[in-house]
């Protein structure tokens, strides 16, 4: 097992280098002059108010005067000691900005992921066991509809109906904590944050909810028709034991791999949700960095998101070995 984990860990390094190199090369090689795109500079340059020196200086500052490979190497050798450089937009260290944003996005996604798994796995199993019953049909239809609902629309509708305007006024319009909650006690502050996170979490959750329930149902259906389930029933095991121990355990394998495939999409989803609810997380930071063509921040976000994804895949691989002994054996050999 340890050998297996080590092998997977070693594979992570080239993959990570591949991802960051491609991202860096793409930013550098894309058409459009990066430096002159900075707002305001273009006009002053034309008016002759500033010389070309400032452009040269900016190029030097962000390593743009060097070839792509050298620039990448400079970036990478700093990354190894966790130096992400400074943001082009406000000159603050990138690590500091990410340190503020990452926990918020992680918290949002972890909360919604937990809710998704807690609700949709039992729901999916029940649906598979009572296949073609009224419950199964109705829940399948509802889940199908949820699955096709665009998240930015749902977010806007929730805001429109529940956050003031001409309709109900139950939730705040955005942000993660109210200004007036700054000097609240810990408990009240947490309550205030929870109140702010309600709608964003709902927006992030319903899609995964539909996806995972349908997935659980499908894998469970596949397993439940296998002969070893019939054998388990035939030898007189209780239905509960057949379902939870024999069937569910085998349907776990695809559910575990699913976790790894969800991860790369999280950042993209966060961009939309955080922009609707004005949440200062990674999605918002990414969006602002893209708008400002802030290469150090873009590179840092891409590499952190890639690292988290690779970590997720590694965890899924390990769990894979835990739930399926065959994989453990094969890897040990």
């Amino acid at each position: 097992m340890i050998k297996y984990i080590l092998k997977r860990l070693l594979l992570i390094v080239p993959t990570f280098i591949g991802i960051s190199l491609i991202t860096y090369a793409m930013i550098r090689l894309a058409p459009g002059d990066y430096t002159t795109l900075r707002a305001g500079l273009q006009g002053e340059l034309k008016a002759g108010a500033i010389g070309n020196e400032i452009i040269e200086q900016e190029k030097r500052l962000y390593g743009l005067d060097k070839p792509v490979i050298v620039g990448y190497w400079d970036w990478f050798s700093k990354l190894v000691v966790f130096d992400f450089g400074t943001s082009r937009k406000d000159g603050r260290p990138v690590a500091e900005r990410i340190g503020e944003a990452l926990p918020i996005t992680l918290a949002l996604n972890i909360i919604s992921m937990i809710i998704v798994y807690i609700i949709s796995i039992p729901g999916g199993i029940l649906s598979a066991l009572k296949k073609d019953s009224l419950y199964d049909r109705v829940s399948s239809l509802i889940l199908f509809v949820l699955y096709s609902l665009p998240s930015f629309w749902v977010g806007l509708l929730l805001l429109m109906v529940l956050s003031g305007g001409d309709y109900l006024n139950l939730f705040p319009l955005g942000g993660i904590v109210s200004d007036w909650a700054e000097d609240f006690g810990f408990f009240d502050r947490m309550l205030n944050i929870a109140w702010h996170l309600m709608l964003p979490v709902a927006t992030l959750t319903y899609g995964g909810f539909a996806f995972l329930s349908r997935y659980t149902r499908a894998t469970m259906l596949e397993v439940i028709n296998q002969q070893y389930i019939m054998t388990a029933r035939a030898k007189g095991l209780s239905e509960k034991r057949v379902v939870l121990v024999h069937a569910f355990r085998n349907s776990l394998v695809p559910l575990v791999t699913l976790m790894a495939t969800i991860l790369p999409g999280l950042l993209g989803g966060s961009v939309i949700v955080e922009s609707i609810f004005s949440i200062p997380g990674m999605g918002m930071l990414a969006f602002e960095a893209i708008l400002a063509r802030d290469i150090p921040v873009i590179m840092a976000i891409a590499s952190i998101s890639a690292a988290l994804t690779l970590l997720g895949i590694l965890i899924a691989d390990i769990l894979y070995g835990v739930v399926d002994p065959r994989i453990r054996l094969e890897a040990g050999q």
């Binding site: 993959t15 991802i19 491609i22 991202t23 793409m26 930013i27 495939t261 790369p264 999409g265 999280l266 950042l267 993209g268 989803g269 961009v271 990414a286 969006f287 893209i290 873009i298 976000i301 891409a302 998101s305 890639a306 994804t309 690779l310 895949i313």
Partner: peptide
């Protein structure tokens, strides 16, 4: 596959 696709597209 490990790329954050939507972020990449935006960039």
């Amino acid at each position: 596959i490990c790329f954050p696709t939507f972020f990449l597209i935006l960039t």
